[in-house]
Amino acid sequence: MDVLSLVGLVLGLLAIVGGNFLEGGHVDALLNGPAAVIVVGGTVAAAFVQSSSRNFKRALSIVQWVVVPPSLDIEGGIAKVVGWSLKARKEGLLGLETIADIEPDTFARKGLQLLVDGNEPEALRNILEVELYVAEARDLQAAKVFEAMGGYAPTIGIIGAVMGLIHVMGNLADPSELGSGIATAFVATIYGVSMANLLLLPVANKLKACVHRQSQFREMLIEGLLAIAEGENPRSIELKLQGFIT
């Protein structure tokens, strides 16, 4: 679990509420149902228009990575690849078949099966790189759904504020209500800017970092599998793959 993400989300919320309190404001001043409907509804609607249903569904399925990122142990992966190379040197590539059958990572399992089937290194690289690039592009498009919402939210917030001001200007006959009415109108702007900069854009960037980390892990697997296919020494493979450790 990524505790830092949770701490950041909570700290951001506390900073806004706490700052409002220190300035003499009340929590009630930040609560406005219509403003929330306008900002959240408008932002999600804009994302619907921009995104395909496939990308939007994928975005919802990977948003959990912000708190629970994919488990990617580069050092453990290197040790696993070195273990595969040792077994291949002792028993040949066919000896990896039993490992392929029980390998939980679908990408690694596919690579091992390609090795066992006797594919040439170039063919192995081409097949695995296509899968890597497609998966990376799919997940980056999903992350951009939140990035797009982060761009729309502040503008939708301004729209909400203007709508509130229109309502206030329509009731100029009662000057005593102008101050509170204007204040309420600008709550929509707070919602839009806060949602974009404290939630949506950070989520998008965190997801992109997870995608790049996952691609790096898979690139390491590809290089390791190619080295095994070319019969490189296990020690040389280990030294080569240690370059992926950051």
Rank of each mutant, 00 (worst) to 15 (best):
Y191C: 01
A47N: 06
A100K: 03
P104W: 11
R58T: 13
V187Q: 05
Y133P: 12
S53E: 03
L30R: 00
E129N: 08
G24D: 10
A209L: 06
S215A: 15
A183H: 08
L221V: 01
A161D: 00
A135K: 02
F186K: 01
S61H: 04
L31H: 06
L178G: 00
E230L: 03
G77L: 08
K87N: 08
L86P: 11
R125V: 05
F146Q: 11
V67S: 02
H167A: 12
G118T: 11
A183T: 08
N55H: 12
E23G: 11
I74Y: 15
V134K: 11
A88I: 00
V81K: 00
V17Q: 05
E23L: 03
E23Q: 12
I190N: 12
A29H: 09
N119F: 15
A123V: 15
A173W: 06
F48V: 01
P175R: 10
G160P: 05
E122D: 13
Q242D: 15
W65H: 08
A123H: 15
L225E: 03
G111N: 07
T155D: 07
L225N: 02
A161K: 00
L6G: 14
I62R: 01
G179E: 13
G170L: 08
T246F: 10
L112E: 05
I62C: 02
E122C: 07
Q64K: 13
Y152N: 04
K144E: 09
K90I: 07
A79S: 14
V162W: 14
R89T: 06
S51F: 00
V44R: 05
